[in-house]
C-alpha cells in the first residue's frame, strides 16, 4: 500500500549531493512531492527533507540506497505520525480587493494567517500550515482574486525526544577513535 513518507536526510555539504539523492528517486520512477534543503542545526551538515508517496518496502530500499552515497551521513524514514511538519505559503492579492469588503480580512483571521506587506497596489499574506490548509485558504481567497500564490516544500522535526542525528554522530565519533 502506498502512503506518505517524509525522509530526513543528513549529509556533508558537497556540490552535487542533491543530484545524487534525487537520482535514487528518478531511477525508481518515484515522484518527489516536496523537497527542501538547507544547513542543519549542526554546522557543516546539510539536511534534506523529502516527501514522497511510496510503499514501506520500497522507501526502506530507497533510504538504504541514499545512505550508501559516500557523503550521506544518514537517511531517516518517517511517517506522518512521527513528525511535526509545516509548509509556508504566500498569497498576493490586490489591495483593492482587501479594501472592498471584509471577506479577506475574515479569512486571514479565521486561518491564522498574517499580513506581511501592504502597498497601494498589492498585499502579501503569509500562512504556515499543512498543505491542505494552505490550499484551502488559497481556494477561498482566490474568489477575491489572488494574483500570485506560492508554497514551500515541507520542513519537519521528529516527535521523539532525542535528536536522531546527534546519537548517530556520537557513535560515528567513537568509531573514528577506534580506527585511529
Amino acid at each position: 500500500m502506498k502512503e506518505e513518507f517524509t525522509l530526513s536526510i543528513f549529509s556533508e555539504n558537497h556540490v552535487g549531493l542533491l543530484n545524487q539523492i534525487t537520482n535514487v528517486f528518478t531511477r525508481r520512477n518515484l515522484n518527489i512531492e516536496s523537497l527542501t534543503t538547507s544547513e542543519s542545526a549542526i554546522a557543516g551538515i546539510h539536511k534534506f527533507t523529502i516527501v514522497v508517496f511510496s510503499t514501506r518496502e520500497e522507501i526502506e530500499k530507497v533510504a538504504k540506497q541514499i545512505e550508501k552515497k559516500i557523503d550521506v551521513i544518514k537517511a531517516f524514514v518517517l511517517t506522518a505520525d512521527e513528525i511535526i511538519h509545516q509548509e509556508i505559503a504566500l498569497y498576493k492579492v490586490p489591495t483593492k480587493a482587501l479594501l472592498d469588503g471584509n471577506q479577506i480580512e475574515g479569512l486571514v483571521r479565521q486561518y491564522g494567517a498574517r499580513i506581511l506587506e501592504v502597498t497601494p497596489e498589492y498585499t502579501v499574506i503569509e500562512k504556515t500550515g499543512h498543505k491542505a490548509e494552505t490550499q484551502e485558504l488559497f481556494e477561498k481567497m482566490d474568489k477575491y482574486g489572488v494574483v500570485q500564490f506560492t508554497r514551500s516544500g515541507r520542513i519537519a522535526i521528529t516527535k521523539s525526544k532525542a535528536e536522531l542525528l546527534d546519537n548517530y554522530l556520537r557513535k560515528m565519533e567513537l568509531d573514528r577513535q577506534n580506527v585511529n
Binding site: E12, M172, V179, N180
Partner: peptide, 8 residues
C-alpha cells in the same frame, strides 16, 4: 586516508 565521517 583511513576514515570518512559519513562512510561506513
Amino acid at each position: 586516508i583511513k576514515y570518512i565521517r559519513s562512510y561506513k
